[in-house]
C-alpha cells in the first residue's frame, strides 16, 4: 500500500499495476515456470502434443485406463439387452415382478373370458348343428308324408286282379282309407304315390289317381306294420270281401322290405300359408 496519494481513484490506480503481474506469475509458476503467461489453450496443446513420459502422465494414464475400462464395461453390460435386469436394484426388481404378476393376472383373466366365449360359441354351433340335424330328420319325415322322398320298410303288397273291369275308384279309395286307418305310412298304387291330396276318379273302364290313369291289376305297395295292415284288409265285410264280391281277386303279401319309390314334386301351396299361431 502506497500512501503517496490519498484520493480513492489514485489509490486504486496505484494498486492495480502492482497486483496484475502477480496473478499470471502465480498461475504459471507450478507447471510452466519458463512461460509464466500461458493461456489454457496453449497449455492443453502443449500437454497433448510432445508426449512426455513423466510420472504424472503415467499415473493419470493409469487412472484414466481404469475409468475407460469401467465405463466400457458398464456401457456394455447395460446395453446387453438380454441382461436388462442385471444391473437393476432390488426394489426395482420387486416392482418389475409385481408388474409382471399384475400383467399375467390380467392376461389370465382375459384368457378365461376368451375360453368362456369359445365354449359358448362351440355350444351354440353344436346347437345349430343339432337343430340342422333335426331339421333334416323332420324334412325326411315330412318328405315321406308328402311323397317327395322314397321310403322303405316293412309292409304289405296288395294286388287286385280285375279282369271284368268292375273295380271302381270308390273301392280303391275305401282300400286306401282302410290302410291309412290301420297305420299305413307310405302308399303307392301302380307307380303313383298316394299323399294327402290324392284324389281318385273313375275314367272309362279304369281309374285315375291324381289324374294318372292306371289299369288293373292294381298293385298297392304299403309301408306299415304288416300285422295291422293285413287284418285290416281282411276283416269281414272289409275291403277284400267287398272286392271279391265284385269278382276281383285280391292277394295280400306281407314283406319285411317294401320300397315305395314313386315320387311327387314338392308343391308350394298357392293359397294356404303357414300361420305361426
Amino acid at each position: 500500500m502506497s500512501n503517496q496519494d490519498a484520493t480513492p481513484e489514485n489509490r486504486l490506480r496505484k494498486e492495480l499495476p502492482e497486483e496484475v503481474p502477480a496473478i499470471p506469475s502465480q498461475q504459471g509458476a507450478p507447471e510452466e515456470p519458463a512461460e509464466p503467461v500461458l493461456t489454457g489453450r496453449q497449455r492443453l496443446v502443449k500437454g497433448l502434443w510432445p508426449p512426455r513420459v513423466t510420472r504424472a502422465q503415467l499415473i493419470v494414464a493409469l487412472l484414466l485406463f481404469g475409468l475407460g475400462f469401467g465405463l466400457a464395461v458398464q456401457v456394455a453390460s447395460n446395453s446387453d439387452s438380454g441382461n436388462a435386469l442385471r444391473g437393476a436394484r432390488q426394489e426395482d426388481l420387486v416392482r418389475i415382478l409385481d408388474e409382471l404378476d399384475d400383467r399375467s393376472q390380467r392376461l389370465e383373466d382375459e384368457k378365461e373370458g376368451l375360453e368362456k366365449q369359445r365354449d359358448e360359441l362351440e355350444n351354440s354351433s353344436d346347437q345349430a348343428e343339432e337343430a340342422r340335424k333335426q331339421t333334416v330328420e323332420k324334412e325326411r319325415q315330412l318328405g315321406v308324408l308328402a311323397g317327395t322322398v322314397a321310403a322303405e320298410g316293412p309292409g304289405i303288397t296288395m294286388t287286385i286282379e280285375d279282369t271284368k273291369g268292375t273295380v271302381e275308384a270308390d273301392m280303391l279309395l275305401d282300400a286306401i282309407q282302410e290302410l291309412r286307418a290301420a297305420g299305413a305310412e307310405a302308399i303307392q298304387v301302380n307307380g303313383v304315390r298316394v299323399v294327402a291330396g290324392t284324389y281318385l276318379t273313375d275314367s272309362a273302364k279304369s281309374v285315375s289317381v291324381d289324374g294318372n290313369k292306371i289299369n288293373a291289376p292294381f298293385r298297392f305297395k304299403v309301408i306299415g306294420n304288416p300285422q295291422d295292415l293285413e287284418p285290416a284288409l281282411n276283416i269281414p265285410g272289409g275291403v277284400v270281401q267287398t272286392l271279391e264280391k265284385e269278382q276281383a281277386t285280391v292277394s295280400v303279401e306281407r314283406s319285411t322290405k317294401i320300397v315305395v319309390d314313386a315320387l311327387r314334386a314338392a308343391k308350394q301351396p298357392d293359397y294356404a300359408r303357414s300361420s305361426s299361431q
Binding site: G47, R52, A61, L62, L64, F65, G68, L71
Partner: peptide, 10 residues
C-alpha cells in the same frame, strides 16, 4: 498425451 492414450486403451 499418454493420459489420453490410457483412456482410449481402457
Amino acid at each position: 498425451m499418454i493420459a489420453v492414450l490410457g483412456l482410449v486403451v481402457g
